[in-house]
Design a protein around this nucleic acid. Structure first.
Length: 449
RNA sequence: GGCGACGUGGCCGAGUGGUUUAGGCAACGGACUGCAAAUCCGUGUACAUGGGUUCGAUUCCCAUCGUCGCCUCCA
């Protein structure tokens, strides 16, 4: 069974399932006001790997990931560009999924939009106000964090500590707030801004209220896992949790947070790669699988550097794996049990994908050796394929070889047999110029693209 | 100011209190090849600095320096 690091308890523990055979996961999705960037890629790829693995083990995964389509950023951009905010959210959402498809991230099972849940949010906020755990100020409705017993569980700090450590930081709207950490549940709208009715005045829900309502509605109380980037740990996840706890509800049982993409020296990356902080740009210029491989070769809780060198190395590695796939195409069998057991052990240990990739490369090497020796490598081949499939890493055995290209390969072999090396070299150059990888094997020349 | 994380060989990036290696990329040597490519075999003074604990630390503790995240929207 999968053991995952849990942020709240700060320990690695078994991912306990509320319902046997089923996993319920909530992943904080994007705010749609711009193109998906590299960071979004790490987020979605990390959980796509988790999701695929869970499904591979036979579990029924419900993955809810929202679209935040009400937000200050959206309004800001709409005002700046003088166009309807819905125009922005619709287009950005379409681009988002284009990028997700591009990196082979499976769609969540549920994709709730914040705008579809405003009524429920208002109802929830009303409940909190009714319990006097939320209160109205000039600019909105605020959560009273001191009414929440263990507020700070994800921040690793008590409210007193936060206050004491605040130094001379400026707290927005402090004069009307009961505690500096109180956060907005409902924001009154200014004229011209998108607005929904509420008992306290027209406005829009606060970001933290969106995710609680949607997660609890679709997954129910005590769902298994809540995930997101490390920046979301506090305040976003803390505040989601605070609202649920205040309402007397059990929230997520397990918290998973992934680390960031680091580009070392800021703009250096984008300069050398081109404007590649945009995910779609990356896909356009590089093998889509490269990013997934980079992530698989490091741990999800470690920050990683993504630059030209990292991507290039991954592309080369991929070529090595594709070569393996081409060489072993047609070899079928049952996955080697030892390799598969090692795979599961590594994955169940807090998703130790670096170890898995080492296993994959090592197994591929064993296949290459075995192939040369004429051994039966079908189990090892199947294991590599099985693992790659489980992780969403699709290997390519190459495209079909057209007749004329096959004929050239035959001619190349003939030329070599005739010791006409000038002709052989020219044929090989021709094939390579057309983008074919030409490999000499003991069975003759083989080509792949 | 508070909280958290991190500094590993040319690069990316795992891991561990000690006799055996992460892995990938790059480099070099070799096998194979007509030559290459691919593949295989082999090679490299690695663990920020200074203390401490220990028979022994890269791996535990403390300090220092440096990098980063969060505390305000953020994957």
């Amino acid at each position: 069974m999968l053991h995952l690091y849990d942020t709240a308890s700060r320990s690695t523990r078994e991912l306990a399932l509320r319902e046997p055979g089923k996993v319920s996961i909530y992943l904080c999705g994007p705010t749609v006001y711009g193109p998906a960037h590299l960071g979004h890629g790490r987020a979605t790829l990390s959980y796509d790997i988790l999701r695929r693995y869970l499904e591979w083990t036979g579990l029924d995964v419900q993955l809810v990931s929202n679209i935040t389509d009400i937000d200050d950023q959206i309004i800001k951009r709409a005002n700046n560009e003088d166009r309807p905010w819905k125009d922005i959210t619709t287009k950005c959402e379409a681009m988002w999924f284009e990028a997700m498809d591009g990196i082979n991230v499976k769609r969540p099972t549920d994709i709730p939009r914040a705008t579809e849940y405003v009524d429920e949010m208002v109802a929830m906020i009303g409940e909190l106000v009714g319990m006097d755990k939320a209160y109205v100020t000039d600019d909105g409705v605020y959560m009273d964090v001191e009414s929440v017993d263990d507020y700070g569980a994800l921040a690793f700090q008590t409210l007193d500590d936060m206050k004491a450590g605040g130094g001379d930081r400026v707290v927005l709207g402090a004069d009307q707030k009961r505690h500096p950490a109180d956060f907005v549940l409902w924001k009154f709208s200014k004229p011209g801004e998108p607005a929904w009715p509420s008992p306290w005045g027209e406005g829009r829900p606060g970001w933290h209220s969106e995710c609680v309502v949607m997660s609890l509605d679709l997954l129910g109380e005590g769902f298994d896992l809540h995930c997101g980037g490390q920046d979301l740990r506090f305040p976003h996840h803390e505040n989601e949790r605070a609202q649920a706890v205040a309402l007397g509800k059990t929230f997520a049982n397990h918290w998973m947070h992934h680390a960031f993409i680091v580009d070392g020296e800021g703009e250096k990356m984008s300069k050398s790669i081109g404007n590649v902080s945009n995910l779609l740009d990356l896909i356009e210029h590089y093998d889509q699988r490269a990013y997934r491989l980079v992530l698989l070769q490091s741990h999800y809780r470690s920050p990683i550097t993504l630059d030209q060198g990292t991507i290039d190395a991954a592309v080369t590695s991929l070529d090595r794996l594709d070569g393996f796939a081409a060489r072993t195409a047609g070899i079928e069998g049952e996955p080697d049990t030892d390799v598969m057991a090692a795979f599961r052990t590594a994955m169940d240990d807090d998703l130790d994908t670096p170890k898995v990739m080492a296993l994959v490369f090592d197994t591929a090497r064993r296949v290459n050796v075995g192939l040369e020796a004429g051994d039966d490598v079908s189990g090892l081949v199947a294991a590599v394929n099985e693992i790659c499939t489980a992780l969403g890493l699709e290997l390519s055995a190459g495209s079909d070889v057209p007749d004329d290209v096959a004929a050239k390969a035959t001619a190349l072999d003939q030329a070599r047999a005739d010791k006409n090396y000038d002709l052989a070299d020219s044929i090989r150059n021709e094939l390579q110029a057309d983008g074919w990888t030409v490999e000499t094997t003991k069975d003759g020349t083989s080509v792949r693209k």
